[in-house]
Design a protein around this nucleic acid. Structure first.
Lengths: 252, 252
DNA sequence: AAAACGACTTGATCAACATCAAGAATTTCT
DNA sequence: AGAAATTCTTGATGTTGATCAAGTCGTTTT
């Protein structure tokens, strides 16, 4: 009888209105009424474990997904067995947008740790957005944001040095953890060095060496997946490129 | 009096329904009625000349734009004076999607030659799409397609050799010219070597050397901006990466 | 037409990062 | 707990493509 009254952890946040991510996620900026309507089409399944696929390239597309806890890697398997890591996704982030185009996933998504997601059936979302201008607007914005992020990544891969790439990567996580209420300077990375390198267009060895070098330069402390950023301003200087980093070094 | 009856070239294709690009462009797949409604919000201005900006990073966003003739380069100016070329756009292609996110252009667009565009005021498009499910769907698909294209580009910049990059670049133009009813093997590139290099993450000199090498290998003939692809299958082999190109060479 | 400028090409050298190789630390399996 | 398998680190070497430098070609200016 008491057990009937126990509210499980999953049930507590089973609605958008109770979800701490609401300000980062699809409901962002919607009125409570609109959130309620959106909520009604969302499905919440049981968590994925490390290594489980949320979907694979080629799968028929039916739902967008929002990570609610844990983290996910998206990647596109390429002809010769290798893969291109496309992104690492944290709670509140929406994945699967690339699949709208022709109703078919073009990349794969895999859980990097125990991970929970909300599934949003796209056809229902589409119908809902047709009668909810605010939701339609939100969808356009999110799709546009994704494009913006991709173009930033193009600049990273096209023009930046290995050092700038890793600094950008670390600061991206720093900012995203901060947004989510976690420490901006002390966090765990859920992906391997190999995956970081793949994502940044670098060899594993280069990533490893850079971590060591950044540590030697007192920019951070790193032990395996645990990273502590010790000098965030200087990391930002590195991201800017070229000699501005040195001038800042002499400051300190 | 006769002059009144003369229909100018611009007027002939002043409506989507008469436009040869309709099958590549926003109206793609819409019913004639829907095309008519979409057409009613589209503005057609006078052409831009080489070097004219369609918009600049930081400009307030009001319209998406479709190239109707000519070609456009999009780029994002970066802090240190340089720029990252983000894309080259041909007739039928939609630009400005990145600006939806926060009502502000994040990159600049410049005409590479005399270029005409259709302007689609976004707020009107948005309203229209709320009452035209087919248009809404089309918008979602186009935004999704853009994301897909960007992720392909990420793989190109993250993993491919200079040779693979240039071959991919050339075949992309080949395919796009073909779609538009032009020759897939004989065309003019409207951008400079410098711009190609910037786009592909390569130095000008590397691009130049590759053109020379491709010509020496009878893959193409090139003279300044004029390119003739002589062995498209082998170019595709190069795009695939690694040794498959050699095996094909021995075929020929 | 001559001069000046910019785009492109070609060669020589250099540097950043990849690759190869081996060993250390961790995790997983039994 | 011990063995096997990963993951990560570090060092040595190699290669791709950048950079530097000079010259050619083409276009624009006067």
């Amino acid at each position: 009888m008491t057990s009937r009254k126990v509210v499980s952890f999953e049930n507590i946040k089973v609605a958008c209105k109770n979800c701490s991510l609401a300000t980062l996620c699809l409901p962002m900026g919607l009125t409570p009424d609109d959130v309620e309507r959106l909520d009604s089409i969302i499905k919440r399944g049981r968590p994925y474990h490390r290594g489980d696929h949320l979907y694979r390239g080629g799968d028929k597309f039916h739902s967008l997904r929002v990570i609610t806890s844990g983290s996910v890697k998206t990647y596109s398997p390429n002809e010769d067995g290798g893969e291109q890591v496309l992104g690492f996704h944290l709670p509140g982030e929406l994945i699967g947008l690339d699949a709208i185009q022709d109703d078919c996933h073009t990349c794969s998504a895999i859980a990097l740790e125990t991970t929970a997601v909300c599934e949003i059936p796209f056809s229902q979302l589409e119908s809902l957005s047709a009668i909810m201008p605010s939701l339609q607007h939100q969808m356009y914005r999110l799709l546009s944001r994704e494009i913006g992020q991709d173009t930033e990544m193009l600049t990273l891969l096209g023009k930046k040095s290995a050092e700038e790439r890793l600094a950008t990567f670390l600061l991206s996580f720093s900012e995203r953890f901060k947004q989510r209420g976690f420490s901006a300077s002390d966090f765990f990375l859920s992906m391997s060095r190999h995956e970081i390198g793949n994502y940044l267009g670098l060899a594993v060895e280069t990533v490893s060496r850079l971590f060591t070098r950044f540590q030697d330069e007192n920019l951070l402390r790193v032990e395996r997946k645990h990273v502590q950023l010790l000098d965030i301003p200087r990391l930002y200087d590195i991201v800017q490129g070229c000699d501005s980093a040195k001038s800042s070094q002499s400051r300190g």
